[in-house]
């Protein structure tokens, strides 16, 4: 039986640094460069089978594995939280195979791998946000045949998408899309922002950080370079809007962050708390500090760009 023991090894357990072999990393880095050169364009790549299930972040993991170095500091979130099981599992994977430092603090991270959220705290130049993407093609729901959607992208024929949004308005009086809201990148390519709530879409625009999107199962990578225009589709008389809540976070009182609804009992009890745990914890800590020193509660910061 051939075992992992006889392969070249960096980490001592028989696998290369960050799991992927250097040839594969090089192939993915080339793909990333192409993706950054054509913002929003889905570049096919020879995605590998990863030791984590497809649909569970293999695209993001491959992107992270290709760009991470020993000096990086990695943050992994799922639903905005560092402590959800899949985020824990992916962070652990990188701790084992690359031995890099990890953090839960957005500001400290050099690479943030995310599923379904963009952190509330603004990102900085030099940071990289890696999105896990289940379905990279926003046109897939309009026509599942890739032959057709590739043509539509090539000719920038996005009328069909605008029509589906219009159909929502005709039927419901509003655009009935709440997440994975299609956006036009660099005024050329229509892009799926991954299933982030539309609340997060405006954060993608003119962001100083590099945004990389990895779809492992579908074997596509795309990117939004820093300071790029990302416009969510809308109509003049139905402008794009994000979610709002009537109340504030029950833990940190933020009125500008994305809130999760938490069921507290079986009699209809509900509370709303920040989905971004780092943002919420930080605000709670700051508040405890200012209350102790008799200061005033810090106003919401950073949640809106």
């Amino acid at each position: 039986m051939s075992g992992p023991g006889n392969k070249q090894c960096d980490t001592g357990d028989g696998y290369s640094f960050a799991y992927l072999d250097e040839q594969t990393k090089r192939m993915i880095r080339r793909t990333l460069l192409k993706a950054l050169s054509i913002p929003g364009y889905q570049v096919p790549f020879g995605g590998r089978e990863m030791p984590l299930a497809y649909g569970w972040g293999t695209g993001g993991i491959q992107v992270t594995a290709s760009i991470i170095g020993p000096d990086d500091r990695l943050k992994v979130i799922d639903q905005g939280a560092d402590d959800t099981t899949n985020a824990v599992s992916i962070r652990r994977f990188f701790e084992i195979v690359s031995n890099v430092a990890t953090t839960e603090q957005t500001a400290e991270a050099t690479i943030i791998q995310t599923r379904h959220r963009i952190p509330e705290a603004p990102l900085q130049e030099g940071q990289i946000l890696v999105y896990q993407v289940p379905q990279p093609d926003p046109l897939h729901k309009i026509d599942p045949r890739e032959n057709e959607t590739r043509k539509m992208h090539a000719y920038a024929e996005y009328g069909a998408m605008q029509v589906t949004l219009y159909e929502d308005i005709a039927r419901f009086g509003r655009i009935a899309r709440t997440y994975d809201y299609p956006a036009m990148v660099n005024a050329r390519h229509l892009m799926s922002p991954s299933p982030i709530p539309k609340f997060d879409n405006p954060k993608m625009e003119n962001n100083p950080a590099i945004q990389l999107f990895g779809a492992g199962r579908e074997k596509r990578i795309y990117a939004v370079p820093p300071y790029t225009s990302v416009r969510s589709l809308d109509f003049d008389d139905h402008p794009f809007e994000v979610q709002t809540w009537k109340g504030c976070c029950a833990l940190c009182s933020s009125t500008v962050s994305y809130l999760d609804e938490v069921v507290t009992d079986d009699r209809g009890g509900r509370m709303f708390v920040c989905s971004d745990t780092d943002y919420c914890n930080k605000r709670q800590a700051d508040r405890a500090l200012t209350t102790e020193t008799g200061g005033i509660v810090a106003p919401d910061e950073g949640a809106k760009l």
């Binding site: 497809y54 649909g55 639903q79 905005g80 299933p195 709530p197």
Partner: peptide, 19 residues
């Protein structure tokens, strides 16, 4: 691929569900 994607619906989706 199919198994991964179908079973991924077990993962938390509460942000999107909230939306």
């Amino acid at each position: 691929e199919a198994n991964g994607f179908v079973t991924h619906f077990k993962l938390p989706h509460y942000v999107d569900f909230q939306a």
